[in-house]
């Protein structure tokens, strides 16, 4: 067991494909967290994240031989598979969702901003929540770079491998994504400032 802990992902995968259950368990425990979080941050749904995590490892069990270590790391390969599964799942969810729930990305961002009470938004948890909502409201091509580069700490090179694009594209998408996030979060910040002013004046009157 200890010996296998030192094995690389590729070696574990090879053993797993040869029928070693322990290697699958090790590989799963090593990589499931990142996969699950990536799916969760991309979809915003725990159900989807769970399903996708399971599907990704099922894919690895059945089609693991398609992984080529020369082309990149197993981690990048798994993120790529996860991305495909999440996007497919989101497309299906979008088709099945009632029309009322569907909206433009900007509209949802504005709703996310205005739904927040300024006073409650002062707390850290809600700041995080507003960031999470803003990230989820991004178009998928910007969302995935933010999630990978900013939230998962994946390098630009690996992100480019996962998304199948050039590093320059990753950089430009991240730049654009951050600009969109700022635009979405700015009204929240303004409300926050106004809210704190109101609190101060209320205290003065009290």
């Amino acid at each position: 067991m200890n010996l296998k802990n030192d094995l690389s992902d590729s070696e574990l995968l090879r053993l797993m494909l040869a029928g070693d259950e322990e290697s699958l368990a090790l590989l799963y425990r090593r990589r499931q967290g990142g996969i699950y979080r990536f799916a969760l941050q991309m979809s915003g749904s725990k159900t989807i994240a769970e399903d996708v995590t399971q599907e990704v490892f099922l894919f690895l069990m059945r089609e693991g031989h398609v992984f080529d270590p020369v082309k990149g790391s197993l981690s990048a390969f798994l993120f790529g598979v996860t991305r495909n599964h999440v996007l497919r799942r989101l497309r299906v969810e979008q088709l099945l969702a009632p029309l009322g729930d569907e909206g433009d990305d900007d509209v949802s961002a504005v709703q996310a901003a205005t739904d927040l009470c300024p006073l409650e938004d002062l707390t850290r948890a809600e700041t995080i929540e507003s960031v999470r909502k803003a990230v989820l409201s991004l178009p998928s091509k910007y969302r995935e770079v933010v999630v990978l580069c900013e939230l998962q700490d994946v390098s630009y090179v690996e992100t480019a491998e996962i998304l199948g694009c050039a590093i320059g594209t990753v950089r430009s998408r991240l730049h654009r994504a951050r600009a969109l996030l700022l635009a979405k979060l700015r009204p929240v910040a303004e409300i926050e400032e106004t809210g704190s002013a109101t609190v101060k004046s209320a205290r003065c009157f009290a």
């Binding site: 499931q32 967290g33 969760l40 069990m61 700041t127 939230l151 979060l185």
Partner: peptide, 24 residues
């Protein structure tokens, strides 16, 4: 800072154990 806070908050999140059981 907001993104780092979000990442830190989500860091401990993992797939439920039932997923591992199903996979095995």
């Amino acid at each position: 800072r907001g993104l780092k806070a979000l990442a830190a908050e989500m860091e401990p999140l993992e797939a439920p154990e039932t997923v591992e059981a199903k996979l095995l």
